[in-house]
Design a binder for these strands. Structure first.
Lengths: 165, 165
DNA sequence: ACAATATGTCAGCTTTGTTGACACTCCAAG
DNA sequence: CTTGGAGTGTCAACAAAGCTGACATATTGT
């Protein structure tokens, strides 16, 4: 073994370290979805409903096409989810003002209330993880995740992020 | 607004920061699975097959029950996946030596070869993200993910991690 | 002998994704 | 004003991957 081939600054790039990162991502994502899943399964809903509710709440008045781009599913798949949410009175679909082909989506009071329950649960876990790890770790966490995104997804993530606060 | 209510050290725990963390996790996970998914869809396989292959490779000779505990699915669900992998000659199931009720699972040569293709793709993305973000960020990333796991999952993650290298 | 364990399998159901086809509304350009 | 295309909704059919419940088999340990 030649010395100095692998410098200290590259030690975290060994296959072993990478595999640990992969497994950490897998197990953490299961924790990440566990709390909302528990709430959703008591109703007739699943993760797809949660995602729709999240992003409608995030950008009220968004169109179906925009939601399709963010979620990356087919309109048939999204439509099935939206239909149940509209039927159940959690989402309101208003005909577009300037372009009447578009549908602008909004959460109703009930929809907002469910969104709060779901995001409270998810935020509580995220808050606890952030608190445990500390501000520097949080910054690193965000940096790595952002680098892991696909180009188009990263664009959408940043666009949402910058529209926030 | 009163000054000093929210100290600098807690700024990263605002709902806005937490929501960004949640969305980062969502978009990053899609990037995380994108490359293996592309490889898998060219065959008749899905993510469930990838997970089985990953953990069999990780712990050769593991039993079905152990795999069930790690993956958190029902045996019917896992069995469907394992059956196709065994039929296709990617996984070998050997009767247990000491306890003949158990089945010890191993990757065949073909199974190992597919595992390499999948993990090479996934590691490449992880490596690139790690390199972009730097060692400190990687450490933070791992810390936050570990805190985000459920208790039982964290136990399994650590057990795998410590058995490595 | 008997109970418990590990595994496999059958049937049936759910959620969430997919294609393909088609209709309707509406905007904009010719 | 007609016509093409975009945005939307819906139908049918299907697939992957999870679930429950029930049951069979082999094996182990008491």
């Amino acid at each position: 073994m030649g010395e100095g081939i692998r410098s200290d600054s590259l030690l975290y790039l060994t296959d072993e370290q990478l595999r640990q990162g992969i497994e950490a991502m897998y197990f953490a994502y299961r924790g990440f979805t566990a709390d909302p899943d528990r709430i959703l399964e008591s109703m007739a809903y699943g993760r797809a409903h949660h995602r729709a509710i999240h992003f409608i709440n995030r950008a009220p008045g968004t169109t179906v096409t925009n939601l399709l781009a963010i979620l990356g599913v087919t309109k048939q798949s999204l439509n099935r989810v939206l239909r149940t949410l509209i039927e159940d009175g959690l989402v309101e679909s208003r005909v577009g003002k300037s372009d009447r082909r578009e549908r602008n989506l909004y959460l109703t009071e009930d929809g907002t209330s469910l969104e709060h329950r779901l995001s409270d649960a998810q935020r509580a876990r995220m808050r606890s993880a952030f608190r445990d790890a500390g501000p520097d770790a949080v910054s690193g966490f965000r940096q790595v995740l952002e680098s892991m995104m696909d180009g188009e997804l990263r664009r959408q993530y940043k666009s949402l992020r910058d529209s926030g606060q």
